[in-house]
Design a binder for these strands. Structure first.
Length: 447
RNA sequence: GUGGCUGUAGCUCAGCUGGUUAGAGCGCCGGAUUGUGAUUCCGGAGGUCGGGGGUUCGAGACCCCUCAGCCACCCCA
């Protein structure tokens, strides 16, 4: 093939490749999410990447409709690629409601697609790790959602983050009292931008998109600009929603949620990580109760890495059965981008801990036996594939991020021993072959 | 989708108002060191200047188109 005919290897805008040093921490996030979700009793499901177009359109917001990847398949069906995992859950729950039984708790870790312009932490193909409880309206599920997110972020190695929570009922109450009840969608959308663009621009926005009066704008901004400790906020909000049933109910729910979170003892240091934020509204139309977003303290600009909320009737478009639920979604690839930016991805390019040096060509059987012994005890072990010179193999071990090199040349083998070299400190110790597993394990534990 | 900035070696970047054979640091390969990597010394390889077209005696630089990244709008994970 001539040079001109050759196809340039490249990836589509907004789509990315994951080399080992990225795929390794990415898989770690996925495994952590899976582990945390399962520990709370959520069961895995999976659904197709492609759905009938009618399943997907008109569900998230008009924006998601615009971003939908859609096409006609080979059988002339109008189809679309899922843009989140919540809509497929709604379809799934409606379709199998009879067999599933309620409440139904599921997690779903999979890729979704949105045709929007990419930025850092914002891709056209990205993975979400969702967990939801369908069929329960109790506050316990609200509490659990916050607790799961907190546990998950901690398990991913984050200490500095804030789960910001709010309640749509409170928002509705405030809007109702201000006489803006019918215009909640544009108002909430404007509110959502408060932290980013400031009160003046939000006011302008409210005036234009929601045709709000000066008094109305004032009422909304006064609410959204509230800051302080959760207890203070609860009291302030109480004042603002007083006399409005929806608002008071929402506030009470928010209070119960915070009390429950405290009882869950996820945050022994206090309430710092879970905070009421009156400006959190969420653009998605289907939320009706608790709404939440998670921001990383050291990288707020990348946006929410995990968010969600309560929806009272997600499956209403597919079934007459009422299927309320609550859940949240971890943005796996956004969190990964944040970790990259913060230098938290690590440098390892191998999942194995031990590299066995292929030292003497005629001792391959010994090396294979040693490899098998270590692996049988759960120690990930790679045997170098060729009897190249020692320096080469050690260099390889170092570059890939192995922690221990096992060296067994003719001298060591003659004494039924091997050498274990700790790559980071360059310390080497000798150990009898019979003890190799315990010694390696001790070495790895000490690192 | 709209607008702005950017795109030079594997990586980070330099390259003055267009002027000979496009540079640096790091990395990579080889050797000093045929049983010990990451340090030191010596040598070496590596560039369609994102891609295509145009202006010009001459383009990495200027113009147009295109692809990609980043940022903003919008929206969100």
């Amino acid at each position: 093939m001539s040079k001109q005919d050759r196809i340039t290897p490249r990836t589509l805008k907004g789509f990315r490749d994951y080399p080992p040093e990225l795929a390794l921490p990415r898989e770690r996030i996925i495994e952590t999410a899976r582990h945390v979700y399962r520990s709370f009793g959520y069961a895995p499901i999976d659904t197709p990447a492609l759905e009938y177009l009618e399943i997907l359109t008109g569900k998230g917001s008009e924006e998601t409709d615009k971003q939908l990847y859609r096409f006609t398949d080979h059988g002339s069906r109008e189809v679309g690629m899922r843009f989140d995992l919540t809509v497929p859950l709604a379809r799934f729950a409606a379709q199998y409601a009879q067999q599933l039984g309620l409440p139904f708790k599921r997690y779903h870790i999979a890729s979704v697609w949105r045709g929007e312009n990419p930025q850092k932490g914002r891709y056209r193909e990205f993975m979400q790790a969702d967990f939801d409880t369908v069929g329960s309206t109790g506050v316990a599920s609200d509490i659990e959602t916050v607790v799961v997110l907190h546990t998950l972020l901690r398990a991913c190695g984050f200490e500095r983050f804030a789960i910001r929570i709010n309640h749509r009922g409170v928002l509705d109450g405030v809007l109702d009292k201000a006489g803006l009840a019918g215009r909640s969608a544009p108002v909430l959308r404007a509110l959502d931008k408060l932290a980013k663009i400031g009160p003046e621009k939000v006011a302008e926005d409210l005036k234009q998109t929601a045709e709000a009066s000066a008094t109305q704008i004032d009422a909304v901004l006064q609410f959204a600009s509230l800051t302080g400790e959760n207890a203070t906020l609860l009291a302030e909000i109480q004042r603002l929603v007083a006399g409005n049933a929806t608002g008071e109910a929402g506030l009470e729910r928010l209070r119960e949620t915070l009390t429950g979170v405290a009882a869950s003892q996820i945050d022994p240091g206090g309430e710092a990580a879970v905070r009421i934020d009156p400006a959190i509204a969420r653009g998605l139309d289907y939320y009706t109760g608790l709404v939440l977003e998670t921001l990383l303290t050291d990288l707020p600009g990348i946006g929410s890495v995990a968010s969600g909320g309560r929806y009272d009737n997600l499956a209403g478009l597919y079934t007459s059965q009422s299927l309320p639920g609550i859940g949240a979604s971890l943005g796996v690839d956004r969190l990964l981008a944040a970790m990259e930016e913060l230098g938290q991805t690590g440098a390892a390019r191998t999942p194995a801990d031990v590299l066995i040096v292929y030292f003497a060509e005629d001792r391959l059987a010994d090396y294979l036996r040693l490899s098998a012994t270590l692996r049988a005890q759960g120690i990930a072990t790679e045997l170098y594939p060729e009897p190249k010179k020692l320096a080469k193999q050690l260099q390889y071990a170092d570059k890939r991020g192995f922690r221990v090199a096992l060296i067994a040349g003719p001298d060591e083998l003659a004494r039924d021993e091997c050498q274990l070299k700790h790559l980071a400190t360059s310390e080497a110790i000798s150990t009898p072959l019979a003890d190799v597993v315990t010694t390696v394990r001790r070495l790895l534990d000490s690192i």
